[in-house]
Amino acid sequence: MNQRNKLRIAHFGRYGEGSTDIVKSMLLSLREMGHIVQEWDTGTHPEWVSNPYKRHGGNGPVYILLDLIRNELMDFKPDLIICNAGGHTFTLRDMNWLKSRKIQILGITLSDPDVMNTVSKYSKNFTWHATNSLVAYEEYKKRKFTNIYYMPFGIDYRFFKERSPISKYKTDVAIIGHGRKDRYPIVEALCKNFDVRLYGNEWPYSHYSMGPVRGDEWFKAAYSAKILINFPRTIKGYTNVKVGILEAAATGKLLFTEYFDEMQGLFEYGHEIIGYNSKKDLIEKIKHYLLHSEEAERIGQNAKARCLRDHTWVQRFNKLFLELNIF
Rank of each mutant, 00 (worst) to 15 (best):
M1R: 07
N2C: 05
Q3C: 02
R4N: 01
K6I: 15
G13T: 05
D21E: 00
D21K: 01
S29H: 06
T42G: 06
W48H: 09
P52G: 04
P61E: 15
L65N: 08
R70P: 00
P78S: 11
L80V: 15
H88C: 01
K102V: 00
V115M: 07
Y122M: 04
T127V: 10
W128Y: 15
S133R: 03
V135C: 12
E139C: 05
K142T: 09
K144R: 13
N147M: 13
N147W: 15
G154P: 01
R158I: 04
I166W: 05
Y169E: 13
I175R: 02
G177A: 09
H178K: 02
G179E: 09
E188T: 05
D195Y: 06
V196L: 09
Y199E: 07
E202K: 13
W203Y: 08
S206R: 06
G215N: 09
E217C: 04
F219V: 11
Y238W: 14
V243H: 00
A248Q: 06
F260A: 05
D261V: 05
Q264I: 14
Q264M: 13
I274E: 01
Y276G: 00
L282E: 02
H288A: 03
L290I: 08
E295P: 00
A303Q: 03
A303F: 12
L308R: 15
D310Q: 05
W313S: 02
